[in-house]
Design a protein around this nucleic acid. Structure first.
Length: 559
RNA sequence: UGGGAGAUCGUCCAAUGGCAGGACAGCAGACUCUGGAUCUGCUUAUCUAGGUUCGAAUCCUAGUCUCCCAGCCA
């Protein structure tokens, strides 16, 4: 159950609904198709689609594709895949800013006609000079007072491809002395002889974001255009464009909220790109990446991501959410949904000396104690099994409850066993345990009522399957990867232990046909999902997140 | 030293002049065939200084700190 959130944006919408300002609430998620979506986008997607859902309105998926030099088809598809995977449906409302090029162009012509835009021949350096600084006003372009006719002609020639890239631009005529830099006659169209992923070579002028975005919103009847804080300064320009162009559709209102930051990771496209390009991770879908594809491959369920988005809330204060909250949401979800199974990551052989050789029996195990409907399964048991190496200590410290010489523990769903002897190799390492079992404890309960302090997971030596398990941890060692010593950047804070590959793991036979992306709890270890690299006979699992681990905490305290 | 925005437990979000509350994290305990889950309890916060008011996180004044803006990126 996802509790219905409330926040300042919804309060604005509530007021707009109450006043009758809008009949229907329309939002939009407007990614630029120049990279992969990450958890920050997921927050925005949940806000926009969530509002549409809760207010009985609609949310458009609009590609903000106004810069052909940076955008690619590949990204459009990955964005759609990710939004769908997150569980949202834009129905027929799939739009592209590029579909509006003609209308946007016409509105620019309209501005020119009304003397509110002009063609400027200042080059980039000159324009920067004329723009002034944060504390000094800018100067008017010498081209600012050209006649409407000349501007019309020049803009038409820009569009017709008569000029080279950067030869001139179309600027809105607003106010060079404005303290808001965005209002100092901003460029609204530039010449770009680049092939566009959708319009090909049909255009050689492309609108700037500040011009295309408000118009696109208006065309689509978007009522609330929700974006991040850095666009706050653009709002006066957004409103100017809508006011001056009077587009058919409606008058959208821009509202800004604080983007999501997550501890122990980086979120900007630039830095994510560097991780990929420098080979610091295996790709955009590396399970350590905060990308939606990375989290998907890691095994985070979409329902958990949505719950997370609800829990972090929406506000204007910039903040960094603790990764622990995300992990909590993932565990909360998987605890209810992931079937339990037994797997041994670091196998230690155990021979049960009083168990008949050559015999195998089937024991009944519960698939999910949180979900009776998940049913039960059989797990094979015989004289030789594997347990987790960590579950045995020859000289156990006080709070270690697991197996030790002379100690009795329970094998989950099986029997009580008692350790008789630890066999070591020449190096003094324990290579095998000799134990005895109590046949009366079959299933895991002692008829005489005696208790054990620990229950261990295990797999049958003969029937279990080999598997590779990839243990993932935080990508960075610092909460804020940027906050390293002087002269270093985030790459200096990469966690060298963020990935450990274990190639000699054993899992119970129930997992033989486990499908890629299926999620499981390995009892006592954590949640794992089948990686896409997995194949029958060559199982590969990714650790999604560990279980909460009291023993690890005790150990850490002692250390 | 221009303009815009924001400051509440360790973290995130609420309280819209009337007992500062929730979640995560942390700590302690209960329970447990997962040292999981569940349950119980506890610790911890209004940026500062003035003012208005019976009463201020909220209103006013002055300050402090943080973030954003000088792309023909979005």
């Amino acid at each position: 159950m996802e509790a219905k959130p409330t926040n300042f944006i919804r309060e604005i919408i509530d007021a707009d609904v109450a006043s009758g300002k809008h009949k229907e609430i329309v939002t939009r998620f407007p990614p630029e198709p120049n990279g992969y979506l990450h958890i920050g986008h997921a927050k925005s997607i949940c806000i926009n689609f969530g509002i549409a859902r809760d207010y009985g309105g609609r949310c458009h998926l609009r590609m903000d594709d106004t810069n052909p030099t940076k955008e690619e088809r590949e990204y459009i598809e990955s964005i759609q895949t990710d939004v769908r995977w997150l569980g949202f449906d834009w129905g027929p409302h799939e739009y592209y800013a590029s579909d509006y090029y003609q209308q946007i162009y016409e509105h620019a012509v309209g501005l020119v006609r009304e003397g509110k835009a002009f063609v400027c021949h200042l080059n980039a350096d000159q324009m920067r000079e004329y723009r002034g600084t944060l504390t000094e006003p800018g100067k008017q372009s010498p081209y600012r007072e050209r006649s409407v006719e000349e501007n019309l002609d020049l803009f038409a020639r820009m569009k017709n491809g008569e000029f080279s890239d950067g030869h001139c631009v179309l600027r809105a005529k607003i106010d060079m002395t404005s303290p808001n830099m965005n209002m100092r006659d901003p460029v609204i169209f530039r010449i770009l002889r680049a092939s566009h992923p959708r319009t090909g070579d049909a255009w050689c002028v492309y609108p700037m974001y500040d011009f295309a975005h408000p118009l696109s919103d208006a065309f689509e009847g978007v009522t609330h255009s929700i974006c991040t804080l850095e666009f706050e300064d653009h709002r006066p320009l957004y409103d100017w464009v809508v006011r001056e162009c009077r587009p058919v559709g409606g008058t959208p209102r821009q509202i800004e909220f604080a983007r999501l930051n997550l501890s122990y990771t980086v979120m900007s496209k630039r830095k994510l790109l560097r991780l990929v390009k420098d080979g610091l991770v295996s790709g955009w879908d590396d399970p350590r990446m905060p990308t939606i594809q990375g989290m998907r491959r890691r095994g985070y369920p979409p329902t958990a991501l949505r719950a997370f988005a609800d829990r972090v809330g929406v506000a204007k204060r910039e903040s960094t959410v603790d990764l622990a909250l995300l992990e909590y949401c993932v565990r909360e979800d998987l605890n209810k949904t992931a079937p339990r199974v037994m797997a041994v990551l670091n196998p230690l052989k155990v021979v049960i000396t009083n168990y008949p050789a050559g015999e195998t029996e089937q024991l009944e195990a519960v698939n999910n104690p949180e979900d009776p409907a998940a049913g039960k399964r059989q797990v094979p048991f015989s004289r030789e099994i594997f347990i987790e190496r960590e579950d045995f200590m020859e000289n156990p410290p006080p709070k270690f409850f697991r197996l030790a010489p002379g100690r009795e523990v329970r094998l989950r769903y099986a029997y009580f066993i008692k350790c008789a002897e630890a066999i070591k190799n020449a190096a003094g390492e324990v290579t095998e345990l000799r134990c005895t079992y109590d046949p009366a404890t079959r299933g895991g309960d002692a008829p005489d009522g005696r208790k054990v302090k620990a229950t261990l997971h295990w797999v049958d030596a003969g029937c279990s399957l080999a598997a590779e398990v990839r243990l993932y941890d935080k990508l960075f060692t610092r909460e804020n990867p940027e906050a390293g010593p002087e002269g270093t950047d985030f790459s200096a804070n990469l966690n060298p232990d963020s990935l450990k590959v274990l190639s000699d793991c054993r899992v119970e036979p129930h997992l033989a046909a486990a499908q890629p992306e299926s999620r499981w709890q390995f009892e006592r270890l954590g949640y794992f999902c089948v990686d896409n690299d997995s194949a029958p006979g060559k199982l590969v699992f990714n650790r999604t997140v560990t279980l909460k681990d009291e023993w690890a905490k005790i150990q850490k305290r002692g250390a």
